[in-house]
Amino acid sequence: MECIRLAYDVDGENFSSAGNASESVKRTLKQLGVSPASVRRVAIAMYEGEINMVIHAHGGRAEVEIYPDYIDIYLKDHGPGIADIDLAMKAGWSTASENIRSLGFGAGMGLPNMKNYSDEMKVDSTVGVGTTVFLRVRF
């Protein structure tokens, strides 16, 4: 099926630029005429993923495929991996440092938020190798 493909390198060293990829996707979906409610769900889910890649995994790559009725987002990193995915999915559970919390993140809401705002979510992770999060949001 025909789709629009976008790819972004997420810079793990630059907290200030975290969110650039999500903003670009948000802008693209708006231009394509996707409903504002769906655009916001995509933006929040992807932004949480982007923030996670920066604060936990030294950055990574975000790949996006936009179809007429939905969007698929792949967030791939080579970070430390997630030992217990079920635990990481629990609201309020976080391994974030005090430094990250002082920046306003690390409340343990990232993965639960991504699940809430998407229609499908899959987390593949191997400790020491990295994590890939797949998100699908239907419009």
């Binding site: 975290a18 948000k26 409340a107």
Partner: peptide
């Protein structure tokens, strides 16, 4: 993180946090 989790249609954010991610969160 909580703004992203709990906020629905609020149009004003009051905060004591100053980094760029406050603006990005508001934009999202």
């Amino acid at each position: 993180s909580d703004v992203l989790a709990y906020v629905k249609d609020q149009s004003v954010l009051l905060t004591g946090l100053l980094n760029p991610q406050v603006v990005r969160t508001a934009e999202m």
